[in-house]
Design a protein around this nucleic acid. Structure first.
Lengths: 205, 205, 205, 205
DNA sequence: CATGAATGAGCATTCATTCAT
DNA sequence: TATGAATGAATGCTCATTCAT
């Protein structure tokens, strides 16, 4: 078992980058393995040295993006020195911003889901990927809710469900932005989102 | 110019029904026009008498489902004799139930979105479809928010944004249910959703 | 056996006219029976009341054109009061003119030939058509050659072969005009043709 | 940039040979790419590695035949040590023989012409092909006419037109042989052709 | 008779994947 | 290990023809 050569790692990265561009532009079905190879500067066969098949390449790309994004979100959160309720608010704000930045790549995740939907053998791989994406976010929000509670914030019964819903709302917002909303609406929506998620429809003083 | 023959209408319906089954099972790319024809009990060519091409059939199917679903939601809402705030609560509850019922077909809408994403010529048709689906719901929620306000409910500044967010949350919930959550979680989530959307994270008495 | 109704004859004519336009524009394979029907102002099925199938329609159209053209050529010739050698010269000149006028429809005859080439069951029908086109011309030229002989013109041994060659030359000229020669060259070529066919390469006074 | 591999050249040749057989037998439209591949002993996809599409394969085949045939004609002519007028006669005779041999493939050229007629994007390619076929022959005949003139043969005013007509006559002869004449007539016709083209209808001593 | 909706055989072309070099 | 030429399965769509009305 020879150690992974650095050249191989580099090549893999090049392929993933090329794949990001091509899959983003044409979608999964529309993307051509040959074009990815050309852009990555490798032979078509080389792609199959690194990935089982096109689906495998695609899901690995998605996982890669998930990883990158998570790292970013964590960095943002951990840097915060605020007390819990304010950190929660900031976390939501950061999440919305992250998701907004992710919008152009969001299509890939929908494609991934479509893929898994119609090919049972990809389901578990795809589900794991989505869990890897959401579970840490969910856990952090639950943590913040509890912390917030301890520090006098709103009580957190059903914290898990609440966290899920918060993520769902942000998700749905992003989703609708793709096909129905104007991107210019986002800032105002984001502000409303924060308020709504934290205060509901209660009268505001 | 003969009136649309009932036979033609019947055949179209049969094709749409067959298409629903096949597209649901295999996704857009995976579905075979020939199988749809076989199941619908018509010749392959007949499908092309009714629909320009596969994409057209698919989007028409989605629009058809949208129409059916809307009709249902409206029926539920209009039947309600409750005062505004309670009606809002019931509307949300009905929506969540509707979406839950739609879950198995939800995949189709994601596919539709994917399609539009990678085929510019389908964008507008697809966007119109989504607007047809969401705008009426959005309008009704806005109306309920205003009505709720007049009858002493919570104030409704930014009613439009709030309505958008409510729909987004329900959407996101459905989306996550598809690939990440257990369907058994839904009832509890739905209850929490209602509460969260109406009361936010404020302390509850 | 009812007499052929005049309406039927009219309809047949309309179909043939439409077919001329469509076959000329798109070729045999490219032509759509439906478009011919539309232009003729009849239903698609009606075409099959008049012609066995597409090939039949096509060959009948060609035969129709042949008939028209022959009638024209005969009219031209019979009107001539000249002595035989001059009439021969005029006949050639008229033929060349006729063929020039036929150029835009010439494609149809090549198509007809292609058709017969690859579908044995059409061979004899097609051959008969070509014979109907050429044999009268051939016979008239042979007649003129003999007449010319009797009236002191050049001797006509092998008159049949000579007539065949004259027709072949005119044919070949038309053929090359289609894809290789400029139509502007035709008049000069026609003049040369007459001379060459009548006098060969012999020195000219 | 590797030199063209001999294996690739061989395969291309095999495809062209198979294509000759299949196109000759069924015509362009009737030929099946799959059968060509099968006969050539290659995969269907391989044909598309060598040729853009069916039309491209077809026109390349025609060009290939043109090249082969020209080479043959040239060899025949250059071998001749005769004086100019006799060489002209022999050239014509050789041409007729060549064309006679080409008869079974002549159909392909008519098909090529039909193709170009109805598909504008193939016109220029097809015209170039025909020019490649005829222009050298035309030039050689013009040369022989001039040479013939200088050495006391018939004068050659309008040599170009005469050459064109000679080619046209031979062409037309071949064409008529395909659908109207008996191949057995050819030798006598050829002899007459020579005489007619060289001496016209003038009295013969 | 005329119609045109329904039919379904038929086919070029693509492209993920393999494997000889 | 990398390559890219070769492969061939796979499928949407067309359109001549039929036949119920």
């Amino acid at each position: 078992m020879p150690p992974i050569s650095p050249a191989k790692t580099l090549r893999r990265r090049a392929i993933l980058e090329a794949a990001l561009g091509v899959f983003s532009a044409y979608g999964f079905e529309g993307a051509r393995v040959e074009e990815i190879a050309r852009i990555a500067g490798v032979g078509k066969g080389t792609i199959y040295e690194h990935f089982e098949h096109k689906e495998d390449l695609f899901l690995n790309l998605c996982a890669h993006l998930v990883g990158e994004n998570l790292a970013l979100a964590r960095t943002r959160l951990q840097a915060s020195p605020l007390p819990a309720p304010a950190r929660l608010r900031q976390y939501l704000s950061d999440l919305i911003r992250s998701v907004t930045e992710l919008l152009p790549r969001m299509g890939l995740f929908f494609e991934a889901w479509s893929l898994a939907w119609t090919r049972p053998q990809l389901r578990s791989q795809c589900q794991r990927m989505f869990r890897d994406l959401y579970d840490p976010l969910h856990a952090e929000i639950v943590g913040l809710l509890h912390e917030s509670d301890r520090s006098g914030g709103p009580p957190t019964s059903m914290a898990s469900e609440r966290a899920t819903l918060i993520l769902a709302a942000i998700d749905g917002l992003a989703y609708q932005t793709l096909f129905r909303l104007d991107q210019g609406d986002l800032p105002r929506l984001a502000a409303t989102a924060e308020q709504l998620l934290l205060h509901g429809l209660e009268p505001q003083s």
